[in-house]
Design a protein around this nucleic acid. Sequence first.
DNA 1: CGCCGTATGTTGTCAGACAAATGCCCCGCG
DNA 2: CGCGGGGCATTTGTCTGACAACATACGGCG
Lengths: 252, 252
Amino acid sequence: MPRGATKSVRTALREALVQRIEAGEWRPSDRLPSEPTLAASMGVSRATLRDALRSLEEDGFVNRVQGSGTFVTHRLRMKNNLDVNFGVTELIRSMGMRPGTGQSRTFRVEATTDEARLLAVPVGSPLRCLERVRTADGQPVVLSVDVIPEERLGDRPELLNEVGEGSVYDVLGRALGVVVRQGVASIRPANADEKLAARLRVPAGALLLYLRQVDFDLEGRPVLLSHEHHLADAFEIVVVRRGPGPSTKEPT
Amino acid sequence: MPRGATKSVRTALREALVQRIEAGEWRPSDRLPSEPTLAASMGVSRATLRDALRSLEEDGFVNRVQGSGTFVTHRLRMKNNLDVNFGVTELIRSMGMRPGTGQSRTFRVEATTDEARLLAVPVGSPLRCLERVRTADGQPVVLSVDVIPEERLGDRPELLNEVGEGSVYDVLGRALGVVVRQGVASIRPANADEKLAARLRVPAGALLLYLRQVDFDLEGRPVLLSHEHHLADAFEIVVVRRGPGPSTKEPT
DNA sequence: CGCCGTATGTTGTCAGACAAATGCCCCGCG
DNA sequence: CGCGGGGCATTTGTCTGACAACATACGGCG
């Protein structure tokens, strides 16, 4: 069983509050019920409620001021957000389109210097790769290459062949029990070379957005390296940045 | 005095812990002292310490397992991260280069439909704009246009003229007491048209990364709209994404 | 009318306790 | 000797209650 199958009380509480806020139960700039009141009405202790509220505050859902209250923010929820939609599959779904896959193939390489550094394995280590053209409503939008160290796959080195249409993350979680907690993506503009252009059915030289992402497990060890070439107009890539406010200020 | 001048105990505690972790006091995969022990040694209650730890956990610094302990992750701190470096100024500094400004000019426009929607003002409202070419070690790297509703500037409509070399956020904070808590950036690839190319001293058609960002204050109201055209190779734009792990899973 | 102290409500922090989960040691058994 | 299971100590998760710090509204007073 995967590590985080059971939702903690705090997580469930957070989701419930998000749902009530998005349902419009409390309008922007409204003050939430006081912590003791709200905790009682939701059947949890004030300490647990405060945990959930703190999480909501860090994500910008609410704004808490001592002595006054907890207020709902005006910012509305971003749909196609790199933060809430992790993989390409979810990104396509969040746009209301049907995700699909074509021209799938797997292969095996030895780690280059860069790959070795990013994945924290020795240079020359065997890597398994899965290349796919992702489609939205049948139209090619992304060419993705997922790279995973063979040692991670343990006794199932051919696991990537089983991914098919779905998400790599689902397969990793179900088959290996690996939970991806976070990924670090590097973003660059690019032009389509002839190979890319042919696969994505666009003219050579077309504008692309290139995302190189490394995903980490709960312990912070690299799990997966992925290269994604997005068509320029396929999605609106959105990123939420936490500002220089009093919440989290850090030197250097 | 700005709203968040005094650090809360929790914030200070978080910073202290981050510092100790980054200083290598605890190595990756090390277990931190137990919560009661650590709380006592830092002179705070366990509840407050738990708040700080939770914050660290959500940012991927530590990994907590019930019954076992709190462990330091392997992920190293990302420097040029859109999350920790908010403005172009900080982005340049984080690369170890000297930020500068050239070809500065301010002007006034009336809000288009898009601008009105993003800034939550009526169409046609007066907007103040500041256009700058940002340089790193003297070399042009970004063309930025900052747009702010005139009403936000109150009795100091010419405030943008005072920004000069520095950060718009600093001026907003000092002069208006406006704290920016978060921003939402939309990222697209682009090609330099002739105007852009001339300003940035690159050939027309050069690869650019276009960032359109809306910044929000503590209450979640839009404050500032900025357009940034980055040279493709100027920075490595990095984004930390929170994965589909057990921490924050949300439907729809 | 304007100023200021107080009363009240809210969030921030603290203290202590128990529940749930994990890991370890030790013992018994094959 | 190897190994499997039960008990025990440790650690995080949650609950309860209390007080401090702060903000706001109200009413008295000059």
